[in-house]
Amino acid sequence: MDAGVVDRDEAGPVRSSTSPQVPPVNPRKLAKVPFLELSEGRLQGVVSSGSDIERVYVSSVSSGDHGLSCSTNNNRPCGGLSSTYACKHIQGLLAEAEKQFGTARVARYLTIEIAEGETLFSGLHPTQAPSRAAEVFSSFLRHLAYLEIPVSTEPLPEMQWFPAGPVPK
């Protein structure tokens, strides 16, 4: 089973209604990498530029073939990325993903094989992939839009299926 999936009951999750299958993520500082997600077969995210507050980089690593891409939100390719070496933005993205989801879950998603105690970066066999900047950036904007949605005071009983629990260590 996926290391990110909660298996709370001894009988397993098969006949349980209220064991959430996505545990809360580990809190992390968001200044460098405000957004990252495992989606569409990629680890993808947004990395704040170190020099310009108005600029962000959009970076991604694809599952399986480890295709890398990195460019600015204005679609300029990142100068630091080559076909054999990941730029500092992608390294930052991987490091923050490990903090957020745990190494095992990210490794499973990207199919990275690493020895115990090694970083994800060390298990990467990079190739170059086409830029996904537009999709990732719109995904980030969708993410931010959640913070603009007003609070609801209707009962919303569906949330009974999602009890809040401890954050996994």
Partner: peptide, 16 residues
């Protein structure tokens, strides 16, 4: 019971 629901993102969790 009275219920209040807010939208959030995954990185906002714990006491926050």
């Amino acid at each position: 019971r009275t219920t209040v629901t807010a939208a959030k993102v995954d990185t906002i969790t714990g006491p926050s």
